[in-house]
Protein backbone atom coordinates (compact mmCIF):
# COMPACT_ATOMS: atom_id res chain seq x y z
CA UNK A 1 0.00 0.00 0.00
CA UNK A 2 2.77 2.41 0.93
CA UNK A 3 4.34 1.75 -2.50
CA UNK A 4 1.81 4.04 -4.10
CA UNK A 5 1.62 6.38 -1.13
CA UNK A 6 2.01 10.01 -2.13
CA UNK A 7 2.34 12.15 0.97
CA UNK A 8 0.31 15.31 1.33
CA UNK A 9 2.52 17.99 2.82
CA UNK A 10 1.70 21.52 3.82
CA UNK A 11 4.59 23.97 3.66
CA UNK A 12 4.54 27.37 5.29
CA UNK A 13 6.85 29.90 3.70
CA UNK A 14 7.96 33.39 4.56
CA UNK A 15 7.25 36.13 2.06
CA UNK A 16 10.77 37.54 2.27
CA UNK A 17 12.94 34.44 2.05
CA UNK A 18 11.66 30.92 1.60
CA UNK A 19 8.75 31.89 -0.63
CA UNK A 20 11.23 33.66 -2.88
CA UNK A 21 13.55 30.67 -2.63
CA UNK A 22 10.69 28.51 -3.90
CA UNK A 23 10.11 31.02 -6.68
CA UNK A 24 13.78 30.98 -7.54
CA UNK A 25 13.76 27.19 -7.63
CA UNK A 26 10.89 27.50 -10.11
CA UNK A 27 12.49 30.06 -12.40
CA UNK A 28 15.74 28.09 -12.32
CA UNK A 29 13.73 24.99 -13.29
CA UNK A 30 15.00 23.00 -10.33
CA UNK A 31 12.70 20.03 -9.89
CA UNK A 32 11.21 18.96 -6.60
CA UNK A 33 8.31 16.64 -5.90
CA UNK A 34 4.82 18.14 -6.20
CA UNK A 35 3.63 16.81 -2.82
CA UNK A 36 4.03 20.11 -1.04
CA UNK A 37 1.27 22.70 -1.00
CA UNK A 38 2.92 25.98 -0.10
CA UNK A 39 1.19 28.63 1.94
CA UNK A 40 2.79 32.04 2.05
CA UNK A 41 2.90 33.95 5.33
CA UNK A 42 4.40 37.39 5.78
CA UNK A 43 6.90 35.92 8.22
CA UNK A 44 7.59 32.60 9.91
CA UNK A 45 6.72 34.48 13.13
CA UNK A 46 3.13 34.60 11.88
CA UNK A 47 2.99 30.84 12.06
CA UNK A 48 0.34 30.07 14.61
CA UNK A 49 0.60 26.44 15.80
CA UNK A 50 -3.14 26.33 15.08
CA UNK A 51 -2.28 26.25 11.36
CA UNK A 52 -0.12 23.17 11.84
CA UNK A 53 -2.70 21.37 14.01
CA UNK A 54 -5.39 22.15 11.48
CA UNK A 55 -3.26 20.82 8.64
CA UNK A 56 -2.60 17.57 10.54
CA UNK A 57 -6.24 17.22 11.62
CA UNK A 58 -7.40 17.67 8.04
CA UNK A 59 -5.25 15.08 6.36
CA UNK A 60 -1.70 16.38 5.98
CA UNK A 61 0.95 13.68 6.42
CA UNK A 62 3.63 16.21 7.28
CA UNK A 63 4.19 19.93 7.73
CA UNK A 64 7.30 21.90 6.86
CA UNK A 65 7.87 25.39 8.18
CA UNK A 66 10.42 27.57 6.50
CA UNK A 67 11.85 30.94 7.44
CA UNK A 68 14.80 33.28 7.13
CA UNK A 69 18.12 32.29 8.65
CA UNK A 70 18.66 33.39 12.24
CA UNK A 71 19.63 37.05 12.29
CA UNK A 72 18.11 37.73 8.88
CA UNK A 73 14.44 38.22 9.70
CA UNK A 74 12.75 41.05 7.86
CA UNK A 75 10.94 41.87 11.08
CA UNK A 76 14.12 41.75 13.17
CA UNK A 77 13.64 38.61 15.25
CA UNK A 78 10.30 36.99 14.60
CA UNK A 79 11.98 33.89 13.21
CA UNK A 80 13.33 33.23 16.72
CA UNK A 81 9.77 33.30 17.92
CA UNK A 82 8.95 30.76 15.21
CA UNK A 83 11.86 28.64 16.44
CA UNK A 84 10.58 28.68 20.04
CA UNK A 85 7.04 27.90 18.99
CA UNK A 86 8.32 25.08 16.85
CA UNK A 87 10.21 23.53 19.76
CA UNK A 88 7.23 23.73 22.11
CA UNK A 89 4.79 22.57 19.45
CA UNK A 90 6.96 19.56 18.70
CA UNK A 91 7.05 18.54 22.35
CA UNK A 92 3.29 18.87 22.58
CA UNK A 93 2.72 16.84 19.42
CA UNK A 94 5.03 14.11 20.68
CA UNK A 95 2.84 13.92 23.74
CA UNK A 96 0.00 13.19 21.35
CA UNK A 97 1.95 10.35 19.78
CA UNK A 98 3.08 12.07 16.60
CA UNK A 99 6.42 10.95 15.18
CA UNK A 100 8.85 13.86 15.61
CA UNK A 101 9.85 13.74 11.94
CA UNK A 102 6.44 14.78 10.64
CA UNK A 103 6.91 18.44 11.46
CA UNK A 104 10.11 20.15 10.40
CA UNK A 105 11.60 23.63 10.46
CA UNK A 106 14.23 24.76 7.96
CA UNK A 107 15.84 28.08 7.13
CA UNK A 108 16.19 29.17 3.49
CA UNK A 109 17.15 32.61 2.22
CA UNK A 110 15.73 34.14 -0.96
CA UNK A 111 18.92 33.12 -2.76
CA UNK A 112 18.72 29.46 -1.77
CA UNK A 113 16.42 28.04 -4.42
CA UNK A 114 18.50 24.89 -4.78
CA UNK A 115 18.64 24.36 -1.01
CA UNK A 116 14.88 24.86 -0.75
CA UNK A 117 14.24 22.27 -3.47
CA UNK A 118 16.59 19.72 -1.92
CA UNK A 119 15.11 20.21 1.56
CA UNK A 120 11.62 19.65 0.19
CA UNK A 121 12.75 16.58 -1.72
CA UNK A 122 14.34 15.14 1.41
CA UNK A 123 11.26 15.88 3.53
CA UNK A 124 8.91 14.22 1.04
CA UNK A 125 11.05 11.08 1.23
CA UNK A 126 11.14 11.18 5.03
CA UNK A 127 7.36 11.40 5.16
CA UNK A 128 7.00 8.71 2.53
CA UNK A 129 9.07 6.45 4.77
CA UNK A 130 6.87 7.24 7.77
CA UNK A 131 3.73 6.36 5.81
CA UNK A 132 0.30 7.97 5.83
CA UNK A 133 -0.87 9.80 8.94
CA UNK A 134 -4.64 10.14 8.43
CA UNK A 135 -5.06 11.81 11.81
CA UNK A 136 -8.39 10.83 13.31
CA UNK A 137 -9.47 9.25 10.06
CA UNK A 138 -8.06 5.78 10.70
CA UNK A 139 -11.19 4.18 9.40
CA UNK A 140 -13.45 6.38 11.47
CA UNK A 141 -16.17 8.22 9.66
CA UNK A 142 -16.87 11.59 11.22
CA UNK A 143 -20.20 11.57 13.00
CA UNK A 144 -22.95 13.06 10.83
CA UNK A 145 -23.56 16.09 13.00
CA UNK A 146 -19.93 17.19 13.02
CA UNK A 147 -20.40 18.95 9.67
CA UNK A 148 -23.32 20.85 11.06
CA UNK A 149 -21.21 22.36 13.83
CA UNK A 150 -20.00 25.70 12.63
CA UNK A 151 -16.30 25.72 12.12
CA UNK A 152 -14.48 27.83 14.65
CA UNK A 153 -12.56 30.73 13.23
CA UNK A 154 -9.27 31.54 14.89
CA UNK A 155 -9.02 35.19 15.88
CA UNK A 156 -5.38 36.15 16.44
CA UNK A 157 -4.57 37.39 19.95
Amino acid sequence: MTDSFEPTIIGFTCNWCSYRAADLAGTARIKYPPNVRLIRLMCSGRLDPTFVFKALANGADGVIITGCHPGECHYIEQNYKALRRFHLMKRTLQGLGLEPGRVKLIWASAAEGAKFASEITAFVEEIRALGPLHWGKNGSAPSPTVEAVQEKVEVPA
Binding site: T50, V52, R84, H87, L88, K152, E154, V155, A157
Partner: peptide, 20 residues
Protein backbone atom coordinates in the same frame (compact mmCIF):
# COMPACT_ATOMS: atom_id res chain seq x y z
CA UNK B 1 -11.96 33.32 19.08
CA UNK B 2 -9.53 30.59 20.11
CA UNK B 3 -9.83 27.70 17.66
CA UNK B 4 -7.31 25.51 19.47
CA UNK B 5 -6.62 26.12 23.12
CA UNK B 6 -3.23 24.40 23.25
CA UNK B 7 -2.02 26.07 20.09
CA UNK B 8 -2.88 29.48 21.53
CA UNK B 9 -0.91 28.70 24.68
CA UNK B 10 2.05 27.39 22.73
CA UNK B 11 2.15 30.76 20.97
CA UNK B 12 1.76 32.65 24.21
CA UNK B 13 4.40 30.74 26.16
CA UNK B 14 6.91 30.54 23.31
CA UNK B 15 6.63 34.26 22.70
CA UNK B 16 7.87 35.16 26.16
CA UNK B 17 10.72 32.68 26.44
CA UNK B 18 13.91 34.67 26.50
CA UNK B 19 16.23 32.63 24.30
CA UNK B 20 17.36 32.41 20.70
Amino acid sequence: GVADYGARLISAFASVIDAK
